[in-house]
Structures are given as C-alpha cells and as structure tokens.
C-alpha cells in the first residue's frame, strides 16, 4: 500500500505531497499524520501541496480535517505552496480551508509555524497572517 512519507524536523512534521492523491491515500495520510502528531508530540504540521494540480472538495476536507484534528492535539497546521489555479478553483467551489494556515512556500511556512509556536511561550500575539 502506498503511503505519503511524513518527515520529522524538530518540533515539526513535514509532509510533501508529490503525486496526485486518490481517496484512500488521502485518508491514510490523515490518520497517519494524527498518529504521528500524537507520537512525536509535534507542535506544528507543514503540508506542501505545490505539486498538486488538483484539490477537490474531498482533498480540501482532508486538509481541513488534519488542521482541526491537529489543533485539538495542540499542533498548528500550515498548508504551503498552493498553485494559483488551485486557489481560484477552491474559492469558486466554495472552500476556504478554514482552520488551516497558509503560506507561500516552505520557508515562509516554517517562519509562520515558529512564530505561532513561539507565541505560546511568550504572551500571545495577534496572528495577522492567519487565514481565519
């Protein structure tokens, strides 16, 4: 059975989706990620979807689910590298990926995660870059 590899980097989990997902793969990713968050006590999850040419409502829901599930396990999720065409399509479809933060690329995503996690230790800052 194919699986999407999940990499661990310090407090973060890193997922790069390189192939077009079919449904089983996506649901597997969802459960694997949640397991990993639990096991590694990760504080942040970064999902790179720059290679995805299609995000439909199912995939969007999986991303949203991962975001909400991680949230209640005390981890932030950032989706990075969305293609412009994908963003336009998602909006047209009516999906706004609520509960998931977004960033332009992996670098920015990392910065955003660090900022967010850093803000736990210090007094909470208002997060203007978030997507709520």
């Amino acid at each position: 059975m194919d699986r999407i590899p999940i990499l661990r980097m310090g407090h973060f989990l890193l997922v790069t989706i390189q192939i077009d997902l079919y449904d089983r793969l996506a649901t597997n990713l969802e459960s694997d990620l949640v397991q990993m968050v639990n096991k590694t006590e990760a504080k942040g999850v970064l999902i790179d979807i720059s290679a995805l040419s299609i995000v439909d409502s199912f995939m969007g829901r999986i991303l949203g689910n991962i975001g909400s599930m991680s949230k209640i396990m005390d981890a932030e999720t950032v989706v990075v590298g969305m293609q412009p065409a994908v963003a336009i399509t998602l909006i047209e479809l009516g999906l706004e990926l609520k509960g998931v933060h977004t960033a332009l690329n992996v670098e920015r995503g990392m910065e955003l995660l660090k900022e967010k996690i850093g803000s736990y230790d210090r007094e909470p800052e208002d997060d203007e870059d978030s997507t709520e």
Partner: peptide, 17 residues
C-alpha cells in the same frame, strides 16, 4: 488555459467521486 483546466478537472473529479 491552466485555470480553466484546473476548474474542469476539479469539477470532473467531484462528479466521479
């Protein structure tokens, strides 16, 4: 165009699902 391609494929994907 790329955007229209993406829209069409997404729509098709929804319906197939």
């Amino acid at each position: 165009s790329l955007v229209n391609q993406t829209k069409l494929i997404t729509a098709a994907s929804e319906l197939v699902r």
